[in-house]
Design a binder for these strands. Structure first.
Lengths: 265, 265
DNA sequence: CGGCTGGTTGATTGGTTTCAACAAGCGTGG
DNA sequence: CCACGCTTGTTGAAACCAATCAACCAGCCG
């Protein structure tokens, strides 16, 4: 397996050859989970970091009356539970959306790795902060964006995140998620998601068919969604342009690039 | 000033006498900010951690068309920007709701402190994770809870958080926030917030008057809100009972208590 | 072929927004 | 000291978006 967590971390910090090897060696045996199965239960006391190697999962909370809210989507390369040792109890559940393959990093391995390499430590820190930023963006979506804007924003985000780990082409990416799940994530009924999707299709912005999303007009979609990828905090490789980037590179970007001049991966 | 950040951190980890002194010494000169003023702007490159010493603030994002979404409320004892050194650019703005007094911890002081004390390091880690959990809970509120449930949940949360730093009595706490702000936080119009408040008052659950909230029936309010304080990840002092706690103490709580047996604060 | 899951459509209901107006509280300056 | 202006809270009526309920269709698999 090409290590997608590694690809993701390299979007935050330029890592050395040794960092890459340490990270690869930290992975324990993989574990397969069936679709629609829970990976980590609310109340569990986790002891290893599970990393999505393949498939999609989600964090969610289910109420007694049947309502379910998905609070995060977990894509290949995403750690499921960066909480190990730090917090004692899960306050939500992680479930597989598709069949999922999990890589596992023991707490000890993670600690050893970050103790040896400040770069890796920083990368994991930034990963956590970027995840928090995504959570804030979902709060914004659910609070302020209309139905169609929400869905448009989610598609922009998912495409960007998948592209970051090499799982998306310029204007298309996998989207193995039901309308029901989309509704549970965006705080809407599957019926309404359905009608909103038709509207997006009718505007000529996207195609969503056989678990694959195609974005026909990324700029228009991003404009509709008020999507600005800054919050993902990816450092774009110089050779990859992001069409909907709001502004030219800032001084921070330039500083970042010059910082990493010395060490190619 | 009694150090509210310290009080808060002690709800995550039992700290030693030395820890408390180091934390107190880390604070630089305080800074006063007027109400309705921004503390940190989107796009800023922050270089010190600002801690709310007094007053209320919020994280928010404002759209071009005037819509504003508050994504987090910052209470006394809350750090505004735990991102220092780790991330280069703010993706949202922090603004003062009331007049605010900020304490400041330089990046160097923070690093020195956490390097010296693993307990403090853990406490800051847990604070960050608890903040992320609060963010998830807001996502759940905005996505799944009805208007009245949202407001009820927010009141439960704010009371619990204020109580954790000693700013709330058993059934009352300050609530210096306008209905407009409540609306911007809960994704609703101030008009609708107003009507929802009347409903809560009519049910005999709360009083909200002159910037002070009184909860007349905490259990009923928590039930209405589906409020379960587990997500706040506070370790309740043994002598303080939380009436709406879902379950008796779990094995994790007991482990936590026994872990901290050795070191009284 | 049946049964299941996921997607689509229509009609109705209901929760929220919008717009507009007005009342209450409060600080400031004449 | 009162008048004024501003912010905050309150109320009503109409418009609108999304939920609900219910039915039906399409694809897939045993």
């Amino acid at each position: 397996m090409s290590n997608l967590l590694l690809r993701k971390l390299q979007r935050y910090v330029r890592l050395s050859e040794a960092d890459c090897i340490w990270l690869a060696e930290a992975f324990g045996p993989a574990r397969a989970v069936a679709a629609r199965t829970d990976i980590i239960h609310e109340g569990d006391d986790p002891r290893a970091v599970n990393v999505i190697v393949d498939g999609w999962a989600c964090r969610y909370r289910q109420f007694a009356d049947g309502r379910r809210q998905i609070v995060a989507l977990l894509l290949p390369g995403d750690p499921c539970d960066p909480h190990v040792f730090h917090l004692d109890e899960m306050d939500h559940t992680v479930g597989a959306i598709t069949p999922v393959i999990l890589g596992q990093i023991s707490g000890a391995a993670l600690q050893a790795m970050t103790a040896r390499s400040p770069q890796l430590d920083l990368a994991f820190h930034r990963e956590a902060l970027a995840t928090a930023a995504v959570q804030r963006e979902w709060t914004i979506s659910l609070g302020s964006r209309t139905g169609i804007e929400r869905l448009a924003h989610l598609f922009c985000e998912l495409h960007a995140r998948l592209e970051a780990v090499g799982l998306a082409e310029a204007n298309t990416c996998p989207m193995p998620i039901t309308q029901n799940d989309l509704g549970d994530a965006m705080g809407q009924t599957s019926v309404h998601v359905n009608r909103t999707l038709q509207e997006l299709r009718g505007m000529g912005l996207i195609t969503l068919r056989s678990r694959r999303l195609t974005i026909h007009d990324p700029v228009a979609l991003a404009r509709l969604a008020h999507f600005d990828p800054t919050y993902l905090h990816f450092v774009a490789p110089a050779d990859r342009t992001v069409p909907w980037r709001r502004e030219p590179p800032t001084h921070d970007d330039l500083a970042e690039i010059s910082n990493s001049r010395g060490g190619p991966a």
